[in-house]
């Protein structure tokens, strides 16, 4: 997939206390082909505190409206500046980047468990949509600290069953994703996971014990995002691998995590 530097327009936004949904539109040309799990490098404003671009996952692509959705959690200067962009802001992005999630064969009708924690739910929406389109059965297991973290649920709902949990019990079952009863039921054919590292390690451990195929999406800090600087490496069974180019999606068998 050819990488492009594009100027998009912020067509619409929606805010929650800690998160913002940005709908970016391409006015002049169709969006390039991209797959679930890939990401963008977003140029913020080049103030001293946001010198480098910020990597953000594809939350959703609406090809007909030429829209690319980002779900961004406000954690620092860059993401806060993005949340403050007024509608119509021109947003410069490099896109699409990284290796996407591996999709099952389209004829196999697989049951796929998509596990997301916190802002790690972002890439799972587009993944769920593509899986559903290809005839598979996505089940979303989404976790957060409290109900506030569980957003875009009406969007997720369109593509699969929702299983929710929060640490404080304010929505769904109380506890961590790995405590959710859906994991006690019949094993899924595949697990796709994105979220904070301790959560991904716990999910990887579950998958390993049950012998379930599992891919996780890493969020190592990046400089270039295009495989040029080697700043983002993860230590894998094949040595240091670039998360931006050979990831961000890795099969758990490639990683050297203690699972």
């Amino acid at each position: 997939m050819v990488k492009r530097i594009l100027d998009l327009r912020l067509a619409e936004k929606r805010e929650w206390p800690q998160t913002v949904l940005l709908k970016l539109r391409s006015d002049v040309e169709p969006l390039p082909e991209a797959a679930p799990g890939q990401f963008l490098q977003v140029r913020v404003d080049q103030s001293p505190a946001t010198y480098l671009r910020r990597p953000v996952s594809i939350h959703f692509i609406d090809r007909e409206r030429r829209e690319l959705w980002l779900l961004v959690r406000k954690v620092g200067a860059g993401t806060r500046a993005m949340a403050e962009w007024p509608v119509q802001t021109r947003v410069n992005v490099i896109f699409p980047l990284g290796r996407p999630y591996t999709l099952p064969q389209s004829s196999t009708r697989e049951r796929c468990l998509l596990v997301g924690g916190g802002i790690g739910t972002a890439p799972l929406l587009y993944l769920g949509r593509v899986l559903r389109q290809q005839g598979h059965q996505p089940v979303f297991l989404l976790g957060g600290r409290s109900a506030e973290d569980l957003i875009q649920l009406n969007e997720f709902e369109q593509y699969g069953e929702l299983c929710l949990c929060t640490e404080d019990g304010s929505a769904g079952t109380k506890g961590l994703v790995t405590d959710h009863p859906v994991l006690q039921g019949p094993s899924p054919d595949r697990i796709y996971c994105c979220g904070p590292k301790p959560m991904m390690v716990a999910v990887a451990r579950y998958a390993r014990q049950k012998g379930i195929w599992c891919e996780v999406s890493l969020e190592n800090t990046m400089a270039c995002g295009i495989g040029a600087c080697l700043c983002c490496v993860e230590d894998t069974v094949e040595g240091h691998r670039c998360v931006c180019q050979e990831g961000p999606v890795f099969n758990i068998n490639q990683l050297k995590w203690q699972i």
């Binding site: 001293p48 505190a49 010198y51 480098l52 190592n220 800090t221 990046m222 400089a223 600087c229 080697l230 700043c231 983002c232 490496v233 993860e234 230590d235």
Partner: peptide, 9 residues
Amino acid sequence: YPRMAETPS
């Protein structure tokens, strides 16, 4: 890792 840290400009 980590091999990179952003600093002012």
